[in-house]
Simulated scan of single mutants.
Amino acid sequence: MKRILLTTALASFTLSVAHADECMDKAEDQTTMNNCALQAYQASDAELNRLFHEIRKRLGDDPDKRQLLRGAERTWVAFRDAECDFTASAVTGGSAYPMVYDMCLNDLTQQRIRQFQQYLACEEGDMSCPVPSAN
Rank of each mutant, 00 (worst) to 15 (best):
N49E: 06
Q111M: 13
V131A: 03
F86K: 14
D45V: 02
F86T: 11
A43E: 01
E123W: 06
T75C: 01
E54N: 07
Q67K: 15
Q39T: 00
E123P: 09
C84S: 04
K57V: 06
D81P: 07
S133N: 11
T8P: 00
R3K: 12
D85I: 00
L51H: 04
A46N: 08
L68A: 11
A134S: 09
S133E: 12
E73R: 15
R74W: 05
R74N: 11
R112C: 02
G125C: 15
A18W: 04
I4P: 00
A78Y: 06
E73P: 03
M127W: 12
T31M: 12
L59I: 11
C129R: 13
L59H: 14
R56K: 15
I113Q: 01
P63R: 12
F116N: 12
E54K: 11
T14W: 01
S128D: 13
D45H: 08
D21I: 00
H53A: 06
L68G: 03
R66A: 05
E47K: 12
Y97H: 15
Q111K: 15
E47G: 01
A40F: 01
E47F: 06
I113G: 01
P63F: 06
Y101Q: 13
L5I: 06
D61K: 14
D107A: 10
A27G: 04
E123I: 08
Q118D: 14
H19P: 03
S16A: 01
K2C: 02
D62L: 06
K2A: 04
Y97M: 08
E28P: 03
P130K: 15
L51S: 02
D25K: 05
A46E: 07
D102L: 05
T7H: 06
L51G: 01
T87Q: 13
P130R: 15
S12K: 10
H53S: 08
A88L: 09
Q39M: 00
D21F: 00
L6V: 10
R70S: 11
D85T: 04
L108P: 09
P63W: 07
T32M: 03
G60M: 02
M24D: 04
A11P: 03
S89Q: 13
L48A: 08
D21L: 00
F13D: 03
Q111D: 15
R66Y: 03
K2H: 09
A11N: 07
G71R: 12
T75I: 01
V131M: 02
K57H: 14
L108D: 11
G93K: 15
S44C: 05
E22G: 01
L48C: 05
L10V: 00
Q30C: 01
N106A: 05
Y119S: 10
Q118V: 08
L68R: 12
Q115G: 11
D61E: 14
K2I: 02
M33H: 08
E124Y: 13
R74E: 11
L15R: 13
S133P: 14
S16N: 01
R114Y: 07
R112L: 02
E124H: 12
L120D: 06
A46L: 09
N135W: 06
P132Q: 10
L10D: 00
N135S: 09
M127F: 08
A78L: 09
M103C: 09
Q111A: 12
Q30Y: 03
S133L: 07
E124P: 08
D45C: 02
D61M: 10
S95N: 14
Y119V: 04
E54R: 11
R56W: 07
L51C: 02
A134I: 05
M103Y: 09
P98E: 09
E22I: 00
G71W: 08
A121W: 06
E73N: 10
